[in-house]
């Protein structure tokens, strides 16, 4: 337990993770949900980068006189995860734009009301173009 202060990166990662997760759950605004999701993913990047650190290790660049390097592999892994995160945010935002065009709202509770109305109509043929809200700002 004595090394807890030394693990402060992990504390930061976990706090960010929980904050992001909480935003995803608690916010009804779809864009804010995506912000939370991005925060959640970013915390995992910090987690990975922290675990690559070797105590007293140098940056993993070959330098004369240095024998102990940090582990570069997690950094490389996280490059991939960052790309995935960017792609997820992009797809998510694209969906939000389409949702706004179709429903005229990005608030989850309003969308659920409209979904419920669609369910009652029970048609399954609502066309994307026929929503008047889309033109209204």
């Amino acid at each position: 337990m004595s090394n807890l202060p030394g693990l402060y990166n992990y504390w930061i990662a976990v706090c960010l993770m929980m904050a992001g997760f909480y935003i995803v759950i608690s916010h009804g605004n779809l864009v804010k949900k995506l912000v939370g999701l991005a925060l959640f993913q970013t915390s995992v990047f910090i987690f990975y980068i922290s675990l690559g650190k070797v105590a007293d290790g140098d940056a993993p660049i070959v330098t004369p006189g240095v024998t102990l390097y940090s582990n570069p592999l997690p950094h490389v892994l996280i490059l991939t995860a960052i790309v995935v995160g960017v792609a997820t945010t992009a797809v998510g935002l694209a969906l939000v734009v389409r949702i706004y065009e179709a429903y005229g709202s990005v608030e989850e509770d309003e969308i659920q009301v409209l979904d419920g109305a669609d369910d009652d109509a029970n048609e399954g043929t609502t066309s994307l173009e026929e929503t008047p809200e889309a033109d209204r700002q």
Binding site: Y103, D118, T126, L128
Partner: peptide, 11 residues
């Protein structure tokens, strides 16, 4: 999907 609910479901 044809239905706008597909968008919400995908999200």
């Amino acid at each position: 999907g044809r239905d706008r609910r597909a968008l919400h479901a995908a999200f």
